[in-house]
Simulated assay, not measured.
Amino acid sequence: MDRAYGRFVIGLQAVDTAFTYAEERGFQVRAMLHSHPRAAFLSATDLRYSLRMRGFVTAVVPTFASPPIDPAQWGWWQYDGNWWVCSPPTIDSACPEATVLTFDAEGVRELHEY
């Protein structure tokens, strides 16, 4: 991972670690959540480097120093196969439980289930 203010790049090895971890446990990676210092929007970096798989969801939590707790106040988008489309925050009724994974260069950690 490469981090600096205004720049955050997740390397292929970190992505592979997270996806392998999920696959070995029968999980599906269906969304990614990250934060921005101010507004919730898809930045040029998000648009260029986000995972682009049909149905994949990305959410941006605004004001990371004091983030809103209500997911309805975050930005939500779903990839339709061509581009990111604004999406309301939803819970997939076919998958009522979710496990939150945090990953970095050191590995993957399961935080808690929803």
Rank of each mutant, 00 (worst) to 15 (best):
residue 85 V to Y: 01
residue 53 M to D: 05
residue 7 R to S: 12
residue 65 A to S: 12
residue 50 S to P: 08
residue 27 F to R: 06
residue 90 T to P: 00
residue 95 C to G: 07
residue 103 F to P: 01
residue 101 L to C: 08
residue 75 G to R: 00
residue 14 A to C: 02
residue 109 R to I: 08
residue 54 R to D: 02
residue 51 L to C: 09
residue 1 M to D: 13
residue 19 F to W: 07
residue 54 R to A: 00
residue 84 W to N: 02
residue 65 A to W: 15
residue 68 P to H: 02
residue 67 P to K: 01
residue 103 F to M: 01
residue 49 Y to A: 04
residue 38 R to Q: 14
residue 34 H to T: 00
residue 63 T to G: 08
residue 37 P to A: 13
residue 87 S to E: 08
residue 73 Q to G: 13
residue 8 F to T: 05
residue 86 C to D: 14
residue 106 E to N: 15
residue 30 R to A: 02
residue 91 I to G: 06
residue 58 T to Q: 06
residue 103 F to C: 07
residue 89 P to A: 11
residue 14 A to Y: 09
residue 5 Y to G: 13
residue 98 A to N: 01
residue 68 P to V: 07
residue 61 V to I: 15
residue 77 W to K: 03
residue 26 G to S: 04
residue 13 Q to G: 01
residue 110 E to M: 08
residue 106 E to M: 14
residue 81 G to I: 04
residue 15 V to Y: 07
residue 99 T to N: 04
residue 110 E to I: 05
residue 35 S to R: 09
residue 10 I to S: 06
residue 22 A to Y: 07
residue 19 F to S: 06
residue 60 V to G: 03
residue 48 R to G: 07
residue 71 P to H: 01
residue 94 A to L: 08
residue 8 F to L: 15
residue 44 A to D: 05
residue 81 G to W: 05
residue 64 F to Q: 10
residue 43 S to M: 01
residue 38 R to W: 12
residue 80 D to Y: 08
residue 37 P to C: 14
residue 107 G to M: 01
residue 34 H to K: 05
residue 24 E to F: 10
residue 6 G to L: 00
residue 39 A to F: 15
residue 89 P to M: 01
residue 76 W to M: 03
residue 20 T to M: 01
residue 3 R to C: 07
residue 25 R to H: 09
residue 19 F to V: 12
residue 68 P to R: 10
residue 63 T to V: 13
residue 97 E to H: 03
residue 52 R to P: 00
residue 92 D to S: 10
residue 3 R to Q: 02
residue 110 E to S: 09
residue 82 N to V: 05
residue 2 D to V: 09
residue 39 A to V: 09
residue 70 D to K: 09
residue 23 E to Y: 13
residue 14 A to V: 13
residue 58 T to P: 02
residue 91 I to K: 15
residue 54 R to Q: 14
residue 18 A to I: 05
residue 23 E to V: 10
residue 108 V to L: 02
residue 102 T to E: 12
residue 59 A to S: 11
residue 46 D to W: 03
residue 70 D to H: 13
residue 83 W to Q: 15
residue 19 F to L: 14
residue 40 A to S: 11
residue 88 P to G: 03
residue 63 T to K: 11
residue 100 V to F: 04
residue 73 Q to E: 14
residue 24 E to L: 07
residue 54 R to F: 04
residue 8 F to V: 01
residue 70 D to T: 00
residue 15 V to E: 13
residue 56 F to S: 01
residue 105 A to W: 10
residue 44 A to S: 14
residue 36 H to V: 03
residue 11 G to C: 03
residue 67 P to S: 02
residue 32 M to Q: 09
residue 62 P to E: 03
residue 40 A to L: 04
residue 59 A to H: 05
residue 106 E to H: 14
residue 51 L to K: 06
residue 96 P to T: 05
residue 19 F to C: 04
residue 93 S to M: 06
residue 69 I to A: 13
residue 107 G to E: 06
residue 114 Y to C: 07
residue 62 P to H: 03
residue 9 V to K: 12
residue 107 G to T: 02
residue 43 S to A: 00
residue 66 S to N: 12
residue 74 W to E: 08
residue 53 M to Y: 04
residue 63 T to N: 13
residue 27 F to L: 14
residue 105 A to H: 12
